[in-house]
Structure formats: structure tokens, C-alpha cells
Design a binder for these strands. Sequence first.
RNA 1: GCGGAAGUGGCGGAACUGGCAGACGCGCAGGCCUCAGAAGCCUGUGGGGGAAACCUCGUGGGGGUUCAAAUCCCUCCUUCCGCACCA
Length: 832
Amino acid sequence: MDRYNSTDIEAKWQAKWDADRLYDAPDVDPRPKYYFLTMYPYPSGDLHIGHWYAMAPSDAAARFRRMQGYNVMFPIGFDAFGLPAENAAIQHGIHPYTWTMDNIARMRGQLRSMGAMWDWSREVVTCDPAYYVWNQWFFLKMFERGLAYRALAPVDWCPKDNTTLAREQVVGEERVCERCGTPVVKKNLEQWFLKITAYAEELLDFSGIDWPERIRTLQENWIGRSEGVEFAMDIAGHPGRRFRVFTTRPDTVYGMTFAVLAPEHPLVDEITTAAHWAAVDAYKFKAARESDIERLSTEKERDGVFTGAYAVNPMNQARVPIYVADYVLLTYGTGAIMGVPAHDTRDFGFARRYDLPIPVVIAPPGWNGQPLTAAYLGDGTMVNSGPFDGLPHADGWHRIAEAMAQRGVGERKVNYRLHDWLISRQRYWGTPIPIIYCETCGTVPVPYADLPVALPMDAAFAPTGESPLKQHAGFLHVRCPRCGGERAARETDTMDTFVDSSWYQYRYVSPQDAQAPFDSRRGHIWLPVDQYTGGVEHAVLHLMYTRFWTKVMRDLGLVEFDEPMRRLFNQGVILGEDGEKMSKSRGNVVNPDAYVQAMGADTVRLYLMFIGPWDGGGPWNSRGIEGASRFLNRVWNLVEETTEAGSRKPETVPWGARQSDARRPTPEARDFEHWKHKTIKKVTEDIGTFHFNTAIAALMEYVNYLYRVRDEQAGSAAWTEAMETLVLMLAPLTPHLAEELWERLGGRYSIHTHGWPAYDVAVAAAPAVTLVLQVDGKVRDRVAVASGISDDEARGLALGNEKVKQFVSGRQVTDVVVVSGRLVNVVTKHGG
RNA sequence: GCGGAAGUGGCGGAACUGGCAGACGCGCAGGCCUCAGAAGCCUGUGGGGGAAACCUCGUGGGGGUUCAAAUCCCUCCUUCCGCACCA
């Protein structure tokens, strides 16, 4: 008998699968299609255990679908643009292209060692001009439709990475760069934006896709829809000048005792009176200098300065002072608010500080006119609100909104927190934005015929805070494609790499296509993605952008669906053995390659899936993986020793003789079949729902059972069938081991083209059940009964049971609850 | 502050729709095998009591609903995650 040698087996089968192109997904095939996608990796140069944790279970699920009869496409590629390549280049003098391509070469090898069923013929590498030309193509399409625009705006700038960032890339309370953790600063810059806000409402609709609640909530919160009213206020002494405010509480408008403009609001300079110039200027200067951390701190007391100007409440013509305060943000709503201290916490604090009146306009239940000690935000009746007095505030909300609309001062409005997607990056290693600035013609898109705008290989990409391409004369200077004039220059910013990943799933359909981002005929076959897997860290980044991109593609007529991925599953994070996040500085990084060498890829795969629920992640345990290894050895030995050429007799097995027959009841053939079917049922259901850990537990139980009955069963036809079934069920999880054992069992190559084993529900159901007998909810006995037992029989059995009688004695039976085929609970009353 | 998720043995975790808590694995203990070790195999393993049969307590704390609660409701505590002056 051979021992299990993972190294030899894995090398052997990986080479054969590759040579046979076993996993290439044919475009034309009678089977139903299944597009299984896992997030493509960034080519950092090293495939770490986190990649394994994301990819190995995905592969198992994809293989499982394939065995179930689907034509599965499971593609792979590389997210090849981005800062690490450029930073490595700056530090080590290697060109980003070389660095990236070397890393990709290394990672291909590591990825192959996993034994996944990737279709390498569809590989996509995003830094290839044949790929990013379509980024530029999409950009031009969006530009034509007004979905890509350039604007001067206060944007987030990372001083370490020397580039602007999208709002989604600024994270945490400290507002740091998502990449490097450096606190960002605000800058006013002309930048390119994609108009994702045009799809805000649609992005809130998740109907028709099966995505985790968590992701939906995160996106909903990020989009931040709020309904309210936007209305205009006149400025006293400035005829015809007005500013608009947004409020979600129009019902409180009669309680307004001041108004506030954001310090950057364009009207501030115009309305500030001479007496207040100095104070306002100083305040604006301070607000501009303060970092976002200070400005947004909740600890900080809200402050502001009076402008000397007054606004007029359109509902009652009351004059209220206009302040400038930095708790009002230019980037949300209109950059101006009405101040209603009685019914808004922030306004309350502000009014307290500046001794502004705090009139109550929504009376809390039982309120008798006493001053408030805090803003009242709950339900109430309207008071001090002119013709609206006495209304419940919810009714007043609508009545005032209508009144404003009738008078032409305001209208209902929906506001979103979501901002347009800033895609300009002042870095080298990315897709050039295909725009030319001409002194005569202005902003001119590069003609489609001139695409791609190729990234020059000889740029000096040291980080200066300016786009490296600006220093590249050959790239920068260009004739205007419209007027032919020479006084024109290219846009030198490159695109955010999240542009690349927004549509890469489409490119896999026809990665070599030179006519279109993807071939529409093949797109009809494969799209959309049926199952997507990846980390939750992309909830409001990639996973929102790609939904946006798909909706744009739909509006461009490229696809006919609204959502890129039907189902999404987020796996958890694998932690170091100390339960902490893996990091080099902590020294708790697990190297998968070492474990692959020592125990085999199949063992690593199995252990990662067994560790716990896939969406939970959890700490790596170097002892735990030995359990997985032990199990695979047990499987190997079981199959090898009991089936080899059909010649082995059970008695020649060393430990068979040692087992005590007395404690082991001879199993019936029926029981043997039952075990097989119930295991298939469990494993089928669990792999289908990504519950790999319990699927593997069921397989372990089955193997334990098979060891128990091997002496009686080995050698029979049923036994051989059980071995085959076991190996088939392992095929998605441990593909090499399964292929090898399949061959040794005499199965036809390849097991991975074999169908998934079927089960019979009736056989899977237990032939005998344990009936639990309770008295007053406490278990007093368990009896084995036939599974079809009637409730009456069960009741009789319980009442006649000795243990039950013993606990019932001296009490009066008041009720007997029967749960069919499971449990009888005899309920008694004390006394008597 | 707002929103979300979660608290089960020494550890990772199981438990269908409310119906035997702790499957499976790790670890640990005892045993077999061995000159010895490794590996492998067998048995045991939530706490307390008991020689044992068995009894009893037990799913973060407290309360409730129910014949029956890890599961449902209320409340409190803790942890993790996200957002955070969003008008």
C-alpha cells in the first residue's frame, strides 16, 4: 500500500489538468452556464494566506457547481495598476511595469499550487494597454453623456501618497488615507469626477439581487438618503439676494432664530457688514487651517461668528441673524441651514452659546411652557407656528412643505450624502485620462481612433505632488485633435484603479476583444455574474462602483441587466495564531507555501474551510491544521487498504483484529446505505450554502463510521460504492487527493468531470429515531423507536415508561405534549 | 451619538421552524503498539455530587412568554465592525 504523498500527487495532477485544459470554460455548451467570480488579486508579489482563505473555498464552491452539471466559468486576473508598484519603483529603482509583471509571474505559480479550477485562457491584466484602452473608452462615453466632468472642488489629499483620493478612500474617525493611514488634508483642485450621484436612488434598490444585509446597510448608509425641503431665504437689505437652505424638518421652520452659512459659502463675503469683516475673515482663516479632525471633533464646542446680516424667514417674515459656522458643511445640502435650537441638538448648543432665543414650536406631550433643557426631537403638537398650530408635527411637515411650494419659496427635495466619484490621481502608474486641453478649443476628448492614450514607459515618476506625466514632454505636448493647434496639452492625471475593477468581470467574457470592452454575443451567454465572493472591505468602494458602472453600461446599451452580480458572499478575515490581524511587524504572518510543502495544498484548503464559518474568519491554528492532515490520511488509508485490487481481506488489516467486536453491533445494510445518503444530503446542502465547516464535519463523521464498520462491510459492492461516493464528495474540497484516489479506484479521468452524487431523501431520513421522554420539560429517558411512530403510540410509550412513571409518581398528569417522532413531554401538577 | 453584527466547554466551533446543548476538530488524560520515541489506534473529556446507576446546575447578567428557550420578548453588560456636526 502506498502512503499519501501530497507533493507528488499535487504536482502530477496540476500538470495534467493544465495540459488537458480541463478547466477552460467553453462559450458554447449544452449545460447551463454558471459564472463564478472571486475578487482578482493585486500582484503584490506574494500570495498570502488571506488569498487562500478567499480563493480556496470559492474554488470548492465553483467545482461543486461544475459537478452539479453547470458549465462553470471561474476566471482569474490581476489588478495590476496602483501605488505599491510605483512606490516600489521609487524605492528600488525598478520600473513599475517590470515590478508588476515579475510579481504576476511569481503569483501565477503560487496560484497554481492551490489547485484551483481557474480558466487561465481568460486571464486579464489591467495594466495592459489592451485592457486600459477600454477604461479610456468608457471615460469618453461618460464624458459625452455628462457623467464624467471636471470641477474645482475641495478634495481630500493624501500628503504621503501625493495624490487626491475619493471620499470612499478616506476612512475612520481620523480621516486617514485608506492605503497608507496618513491623515488627509483638504485642497481645492480641479479634478475629474464620475457622476455616481445620478444613480443614487437606483443604487439604494437591492431588489432582485441576493447580497448580504451587511453590505446593503453599509451602502445605504453611505448613500445617506434624506427627504426634506429646500427653500430660499431673502437677505434683509440686499434686494434680490437670497440663499437656499435644506432641512428635513420643515415643520420646525417657525422656530428658526438664526441661520448659518458654511465658512466657504460664496455669499459670505458679499453680505458681511464692515463691522464684522475682521471677525469673519479670522474665522474663515481658522476654519480653513484646521484639519478635518479638529473641525469634525464632537468634543469641540460649536462656534461661529455673526456676519452682521439678517435673513428673512419666508413663513413669518421674521428677521434672523446670519452666522458663519464650521459645523455647516459646504459639501452637503446647500451649505447653509436654518437654525432651530429647540428641535435640533447642534442648533441648541449654538443658541446656548450665543444667547439666541430657543422658542418651542413642537410641544412635547404634557408640555406646559417651561424652557427646554435639551433639544426636543420627538413627536408633538405644533405651537407658535401661525396657521399650523394644533397640528400633529407629522401633518405640519407636509402642510408647510406644500405652503412653501405654493408661495414659490421652496420645494421638496431628496438629499444624498453620496458624492460624485473623484477619479483623478496625481500618480504615474494608472490609466491616463484621455483628455486634451487646447488654448482655443478648451477641454477636448481624445478621439476614439487615437486610443489608447498609452502610458509612456520612460516617465520620471518620483512623487512631487504633481502628476509625473506633467514632466514628460513627449506625453504632455500634443496637437489639438479639434483645431490642430499646437497650444494644447494632455491631461496628466491618471485614473483611480477602482475604475479598472469596476468592469473587469465583463472583460473575462472575451479578454482579447479588440472591438469592444467585451463581445456582446458571449456576454449574452455568460453575464451577469452568478456568484461573487470577496472581502467586505470593498463594501462602499469596489462593490458600489461596479454597480454604478453596470447601470451606466446598461444606459449605454451594452448590457440588459441592472446589477453586475446576482449573489454576493463576503468571507471573513483570517487572523494570526495570536488572534490578531496578520502583519509583518507582529511576526504572526502565516506562510501558506510552507504548509503546502509540508502537508499539501489539499490539507491547507481543507483546514481553511474547516476552521469555522467562512464569513466569520478567525485565527489560524497550527495544531488545527494537523487535524485536517490526519483526516486526509485516514481517508487515504481507508480507501487504499480496503479496495486495492479488491484483494485485501479485512483480517490482514493490522488494527482490524484488535478491535473488540463485542461493543460493535453488526450494522445492517440498510444502516450502511442510510449513512451514505444522509452524508450526501448534508454535504450537498452545506457546500451549496458555503457552510464548508459543517460539510467537512459530516464527512469526518462518515469516515469515522466507515472505520467502525469496515470489518463487516469492506469487500462488498456497497463498500466500493461508498468509497467512490466519499471520494466524489471530497473532489471539490481536496481536488488532487480525490483525483488520485479516483484513479486508484479505477474511475475514469477526470473525477472533476464526474457528476455530483445523488441522494434519496427517504434513505437519508433516519430509519430509527430516538424518542425523547420528558417530564415537565426535563429529559428522563430516551427510547429507540421506528421513525414512523404515531403520536398515540408515542404517548402510550411515554406513560408506560418506568423512568417516566418514577418521576410522575405522586403528581397529577395535566397534559402530554407530543412532537411527532421526536419527543414526548409529560406535564404534571404538584400536590396530591 | 447613530446604525449593524455577535456573546455557547480549556480552544475553533455545532444545534432544522422553539423540542436530546456541546456534533466535528484541536487540546488534555488514560491505555494499546514500541527497546524508546514519532506516527497510528482505542477509551474518556462542560461544572458540581456519587463507587456506580444516576442526580443536579449549565449557552454574557437579570426578568418574561411557553408544556418546552442557546433560539422569541424586555432590560442591562461586554466585544467587534461601519458611519459620524449629513441639517
